[in-house]
Simulated scan of single mutants.
Amino acid sequence: MIDLDDTDRAILRALVEDASQSASALGRRFGLSQPATWRRIRRMEEAGVFRGRRVEIDHERLGFGVTVFLGVKLATKGRVSLEDFERAVSAIPEVQTVQHVLGVYDYRLRVIARDLSDFERVLRRRIMTLPGLGQVDANVLLSEELLPGPLG
């Protein structure tokens, strides 16, 4: 675990809001030089506080208006390996995340589709044919708010 001071946390919150900000812009905002800001960012990155910077895609603007979370329970864990299931589900382009979870389900999937009929096509033709698939439970996303979490 890395020790973060108030300035580190402020820089981290600013990067969560907009990861494209330069070290010089962040430095001006927080009263630091560009090199000092860059050293702080680099130290946090090297410590694994964050891993790289990502582009957040607006799937709706690309025509994918439906997001569905699937709870997947495998039929029999011994008959198909988890790796086989993970490999097969990861090959489906509409599946955005695959999470191996503990609880009622074995996996939680985030699936995007153009609309509900497109989701039905993905479900019937791709997901329901996965090796070892047992029970599937679907929850359609109505709205989502991304929060930075407890950054202090």
Rank of each mutant, 00 (worst) to 15 (best):
R9P: 00
Q96N: 04
V111M: 01
R53W: 07
P150S: 08
P35F: 05
S20A: 15
G132M: 07
Q34R: 15
T67E: 12
V104P: 00
A88R: 06
E45P: 01
G65N: 13
E56D: 06
S24W: 04
V111Y: 01
A36N: 07
L4S: 06
R108V: 08
R61C: 08
L142H: 12
A19K: 03
E45V: 00
I2F: 04
V104R: 04
I127F: 01
D6H: 03
G63S: 15
E60Q: 15
E120N: 14
V95L: 10
L133E: 04
L26A: 04
L133C: 01
Q34G: 09
G63I: 15
F64E: 14
R54C: 04
D3P: 00
V55E: 13
L82Q: 12
R125M: 00
I92K: 03
V89N: 03
G103M: 11
E94C: 06
R40T: 09
E45S: 07
L142S: 14
Q96R: 14
G65M: 12
M44T: 01
V101S: 10
I92R: 02
S20M: 08
L133R: 04
I11A: 00
R61F: 13
F30W: 09
Q21K: 13
R51P: 00
R43F: 06
G132Y: 09
L26F: 09
R125N: 08
E86F: 01
Q96V: 10
A19D: 06
S143T: 10
E45M: 01
A138L: 15
S20E: 11
L116K: 07
V72S: 03
T76L: 08
L26S: 05
E144I: 14
R87G: 01
Y105G: 03
E86S: 02
V122L: 00
H59F: 15
E144Y: 11
V104E: 06
F64P: 11
D115K: 10
V140I: 15
S117G: 08
E86T: 02
L142K: 11
P131H: 06
S143L: 01
E46W: 03
R114A: 13
R43A: 10
K77L: 12
H59G: 10
D8M: 03
